[in-house]
Amino acid sequence: MTSATCAAPPVVDLRGVARTYQGPSPVTALHPVELRIGVGEHVAIIGPSGSGKSTLMNLIGLLDRPTAGTYLMDGVDTSQISERDRTALRGHRIGFVFQAFHLMPHRSCVENVMLAQLYTSRRPKATRRANAIEALVQVGLGHRLEAHPGTLSGGERQRVAIARAIVNRPKLLLADEPTGNLDSSMAHSVLDILDNLIADGLTLLVITHDATVAARARRTVRIADGRLTETQTGATGAG
């Protein structure tokens, strides 16, 4: 993995990014935002539902385009590139972890993880399978490679989803309420795995409304009514 160097651009660099939903009465979901996340950082965005968390996550994840401002993703100005390149950037440099897991129920763990390489990797299938197994081992599921998601616990399912998110070795891991559907013990195991990934040099952005999840991050950004307020917390975790 690339380690943080002085020359490396921030993974996420939001410059006055805003998002307004057009309509009879336009709604500003996100007021102009300045946010920089460097390589290897662990940032939590915390806020109540309806605060604009999801809007921010969609913008950072290149699933949505801002209505104002500039977003540099890993040094690439995403407002200047085509939709096709945005899609490629999303596939290669961003890994998504969803609250609802979004696993394919009829496919085994390995097949679910391999799906992430379908559109991005030009390597042969055997190599992709080996990569998928490696990612599953990394999240502690080396013993359930051929299991189907239906036979897994919630925590295990989220770990499969994490393996899928990291198999392409992205720069940024975007986790949207990663523990929202899990009980506390499972949540802990999932959060531990995410902590380990940061130790390996991955940049992690967790979006949550759960203070205990946010407490693990070194930086916490509060969002309310579409406005960011950063609180520098000397949180727990590796440093």
Binding site: G61, A88, R90, L118, Y119, T120
Partner: peptide
């Protein structure tokens, strides 16, 4: 729909 969203997030283009 969820699967379509997932595939798009994994780098699939609309034509895919």
């Amino acid at each position: 729909t969820g699967e379509i969203g997932l595939r798009r997030s994994l780098g699939a283009r609309p034509r895919h």
